[in-house]
């Protein structure tokens, strides 16, 4: 117990010292790793199966993260004064497993939201460590919309269960009942089988999309104006 205390105290002293000196350097560089968790919020829609997830996604792709970029800073218009900088993955699309976007051309790259920076700290979604260049995986994605429901060029996971990274013989994904149904420990092979089945179910119509009502203010910038809503 004494050694444990000593080690902890030494570690704490070391990091306090290093933290002060780092801050003192005045560096504006955003951190490479997250220090805060974005806790899972109350969801407007939930999924019972991976097939529903695939059917709801606009596009399901297998790809490799080839770069991480800073998105344009967003200042919330809610009066909080908070500004976040999206962390965007540049995804090299190796295979489109399913697409509802229409058209014949498949995207070669996609920009995918993966956490953000705020006040110099990195935020990662609960159960989803930041992906890094070189990571390869499957992504269930939907196209982002802004506050006025305009489509943006970026994409996001349709659900936290919608990302599987294949690393060192493991299949990494967020804890979710959707993956628990695959097995207590998901292997790359079992994940691929489950994803293929989900895509087949979505393509065949056996799995239906889970729609949600999304709204914008009828008067731009006035949150008290009547909402105009659509199903997505």
């Amino acid at each position: 117990m004494t050694n444990r205390w000593l080690f902890a105290a030494a570690l704490a002293a070391l990091v306090i010292a290093s933290g002060c000196s780092l801050n003192g350097s005045g560096s504006d560089a955003l951190p490479d790793g997250p220090s805060q968790i974005i806790h899972e919020g109350d969801r407007a829609r939930t999924f019972d199966t991976l097939g529903q997830l695939a059917a709801t996604a606009k596009i399901v792709v297998r790809g490799e993260v080839i770069d991480v970029r800073e998105g344009n800073p967003i200042t919330f218009a809610d009066g909080s004064g908070i500004t976040v900088t999206p962390r965007l993955l540049l995804l090299d699309v190796q295979q489109v497993l399913m697409s509802r976007s229409g058209g014949n051309q498949s995207p070669t790259t996609l920009e995918v939201n993966d956490g953000y920076w705020q006040s110099g700290e990195g935020y990662a979604r609960e159960g989803l460590p930041w992906a890094q260049p070189g990571d390869v995986g499957v992504f269930f994605l939907t196209q982002d919309r802004d506050r006025d429901l305009n489509l943006l060029p970026t994409y996001s996971l349709v659900d936290t269960a919608g990302r599987v990274l294949f690393e060192n013989g493991h299949a990494e994904h967020a804890t979710s009942p959707l993956w628990a149904a695959v097995g207590s420990s998901t292997t790359p092979d079992s994940a691929r089988v489950a994803i293929d089945r989900a895509v087949q179910d979505a393509r065949s119509g056996r799995a239906k999309p889970v729609t949600v009502t999304i709204c914008r203010p009828s008067v731009r910038g006035d949150e008290n104006s009547e909402p105009v809503c659509i199903e997505e």
């Binding site: 805060q36 919020g41 909080s80 956490g115 506050r147 429901l149 659900d159 709204c215």
Partner: peptide, 22 residues
């Protein structure tokens, strides 16, 4: 507890999320 509301859109961690606490 500071409470705000806004049309935050559907991007990133707001996808399918109606409310959250940080």
């Amino acid at each position: 507890v500071e409470v705000y509301d806004d049309y935050y859109g559907t991007g990133g961690d707001w996808q399918s999320v109606s409310g959250k606490v940080t």
